[in-house]
Design a protein around this nucleic acid. Structure first.
Lengths: 190, 190
DNA sequence: TATTCATGTTCATTATAGTAAACTTATTTC
DNA sequence: GAAATAAGTTTACTATAATGAACATGAATA
């Protein structure tokens, strides 16, 4: 972060997206309405304690208010061939999927970085039998469902499941979640 | 984060590890020596701007000073069998490697979360020919070397390389780096 | 059009973050 | 063992974060 965080705009953006008034946020956070107004219009230098109270009031991580969005995404190959895989990215319903490795690199392995906005869900139909998915939560927390099985996993947690049944990854929290996903396709394993 | 961050201890820990005096850090950050002393002993509630200046002076991310260390690491399996892989973790020279998936789960795939302290390096001898490694940087930045090839990758970057030559992952920065690593072992591919 | 109600802003005051300088406490040097 | 240097702490003061109350602005109701 090369420049001090623009806290005011972040707070205002989130407060508006939550449809909260200054009065309500003031009650929830314990920070005066006047202070909130001044912070949002960058008239003051709030203390960490105050920003933290606001973060609690908004139900987000402190870091979400201080972040200057970092979305630099480069993909490299160090292979002799040196082929550079495509930077594919798809968006839908608050879920963005970036393909890290592509089929051109390994024929039965795919890797993704899945970003889930608050209260978004990624549903998948059953894959070919034998397919496995390996999830590592990089940020936030998600609820994973595979057939009858459910698990709630959060940052740094790891989860494996067979995905020859309907499965989903849901972000039921109020902050962005990011999961690293490896899909392993093994045609005839069961 | 359920409790306000303990900024003071974080700053002091990092300052000491850098062997900096209050005077030097004061010069580098532009925050008075007195303020630094009071912040470190939790006598005051610093403003975000001040903590940001200190972060710059220490050459770390703002977030590193506000973090309340989160190291909860759970591993799950959603498979019918329900076998729970081991939470193995090894430490050496500032590099900690957590094994996510184990051989018991898939015979030719391994997944790790590698954490590298500032200025630490993970060196590996050549693996069996055909082995590939897939890196995704989760935090910070690292320099990867595989034979003659070198690449510097940072947060959200992805890198693939054949590792049948001597290779290494180095953290040459002043902050912790975390990389997600998938090792794919394919006996006879080249 | 006046009247209420709800929004966000500005004002006057108090509490406290931030500073420079003085003070302490070691450790070194002659 | 006195003087000098360098570490962190405390003091006295100034700048400003934070507050509650008053003020403005607009939308809805009669």
């Amino acid at each position: 972060m090369e420049t001090p965080p623009m806290i005011g705009k972040n707070i205002q953006r989130i407060r508006n997206s939550r449809k909260l008034t200054l009065n309500v946020l003031s009650e929830r956070s314990g920070v005066s309405k006047a202070m909130l107004s001044q912070i949002e219009s960058d008239k003051v230098n709030p203390t960490v304690a105050t920003v933290w109270k606001i973060a609690r009031g908004l139900n987000v991580e402190l870091n979400d208010l201080l972040d200057t969005d970092d979305q630099p995404k480069r993909i490299f190959s160090l292979n002799p061939a040196g082929e550079e895989p495509p930077k594919l990215e798809t968006h839908a319903n608050g879920v963005s999927i970036r393909i890290l490795s592509s089929m051109s690199m390994v024929e039965d392995l795919e890797m993704y970085l899945v970003s889930l906005e608050p209260h978004s869900i990624l549903k998948s139909e059953p894959h070919y039998s034998g397919t496995q998915e390996f999830l590592t939560v990089v940020k936030g927390a998600v609820k994973v469902q595979a057939g009858e099985n459910v698990a709630e996993i959060k940052k740094n947690d790891f989860l494996v499941y067979h995905c020859d049944v309907e499965h989903s990854i849901a972000n039921e929290t109020n902050q962005v979640a990011i999961v690293h996903m490896v899909v392993r396709f093994t045609p005839d394993k069961r």
